[in-house]
Write a protein that binds this DNA or RNA. Structure first.
Lengths: 228, 228
DNA sequence: GCTTTAGGTAAATATCTTGTTACTTAGAGG
DNA sequence: CCTCTAAGTAACAAGATATTTACCTAAAGC
């Protein structure tokens, strides 16, 4: 080693290969917080609150443990922030769905498919929610963010149901909350229990053709539940 | 200690308050293992694999940590055993359901209610399964027990569907596995996410009248899904 | 250029936690 | 009664782990 590292040479420490690890990050509070949040989301999703390691979160964020405490205060506060972001992201994606102008059955089907696809493409969301429920919701419970963000959570579905009932394609008396929960349930359960499910049913629940079968079953099921 | 307990005096497995905690247990390998398993089930269900503490498991079992390693080998092996037992218990309860002689729709409804009630009365089962899925099913995957126990898991439901199709009350082409998963999903999701759900929907999902509404919705949903 | 401050680093600390070791003793079988 | 095995206890070792402390330095504002 000639003189390769002049001053900030924070090399090997982590086993990553390319340049990104070498290049010390420019001082950028916002970027560092983002890296920490992203890393934390991944670690908490992978190992849960108790299983995740602050050291690993810092390392994967290419940041220092000290920064975690500087920006977030504690491991639990970081977990709370991660959860809030996860919910915000889902709600944001939901809001982008424009279902109001669609025929009710088409709109509902689209919502079912959206929910499924979101879970499929954001597996972290599911394990984070599971972790929070293991902890009895204490982090979200004391977080104003979720409460404000999840206001009118059922509005869209209520509108949809009302339109469908009016036009006669949906039956009357459907509870929007029960339906919302059911739409989530049919996808969430399948995906969150994909490992034990694959063992119990002796097949790969994550095989593409199995996923395909599942979403089609879910769409048909929900349409039958609301059908007039 | 007079002689109060003759020999198998395994007092209240858990929630003991006064004397029983003091009285040293008679030497009884089987009883000790049972106490450890029961305590471990509770702790793992409450805190997950990473969050549970071997010390606490031993203490609550009124046993010694050493005994855990003596009888089960490691924390993970104990977790595996707890899981195996949890699944066996569910399957055992399922087997006791005698649905063969019932009219298909009645039998199916009974199965939906059974599944719901089992989850409701055995909340440990849900969190244990969640924990195992967080760990990608590695413990059950390498356990011969579950594999042998869950053979023919769909047999009952397949029979039921066949009978209902024959008599015309169920439509044709229903996949027993998809239906089985859906029956579990509608109950499991609601209960496993009861904390975050109560926050998001601003109501107590565990209030008796809410539970009542949910199971009725689930029964109707499943019957609609299979309806001819 | 100089000062100040906020972004950043490394090492220390105090506490936990799993698993082990060395030891004690009940009680079954002779 | 005596012996020997297996149930049980308590204390320890080694390594993690969350959080803090002491320190450094880039770069923004003057």
């Amino acid at each position: 080693m000639t003189q390769a590292e002049s001053k900030e040479g924070n090399d090997s420490l982590l086993g990553k290969n390319a340049a990104s690890a070498r290049t010390p990050h420019k001082r950028d509070a916002e970027a560092t917080q983002k890296r920490i949040l992203s890393s934390a989301k991944h670690e908490f999703a992978m190992s849960g609150l108790a299983g995740a390691r602050v050291d690993v979160i810092a390392e994967k964020a290419e940041a220092n443990k000290r920064m975690i405490y500087h920006y977030f205060g504690s491991k639990e506060a970081l977990f709370t922030k991660v959860l809030e972001e996860a919910y915000s992201d889902l709600y944001e994606a939901e809001r982008k769905l424009k279902l109001d102008h669609l025929e009710p059955r088409v709109a509902l089907e689209r919502f079912v498919r959206f929910t499924w696809t979101y879970y499929l493409e954001n597996p972290d969301f599911i394990t984070l929610v599971n972790s929070e429920n293991l902890h009895k919701g204490v982090h979200l419970g004391s977080s104003g963010v979720l409460k404000s963000v999840s206001r009118n959570r059922l509005h869209m579905l209520e509108n949809l149901l009302a339109r469908g009932q009016k036009s006669g394609v949906f039956r009357k008396g459907i509870d929007a909350m029960q339906l919302h929960i059911s739409i989530a349930a049919l996808g969430y359960y399948y995906l969150t229990n994909r490992y034990t499910g694959s063992i119990v049913f002796r097949c790969d629940l994550m095989a593409p053709e199995m996923l395909e079968k599942r979403i089609e079953f879910n769409v048909e099921s929900i349409l039958r539940i609301v059908g007039a």
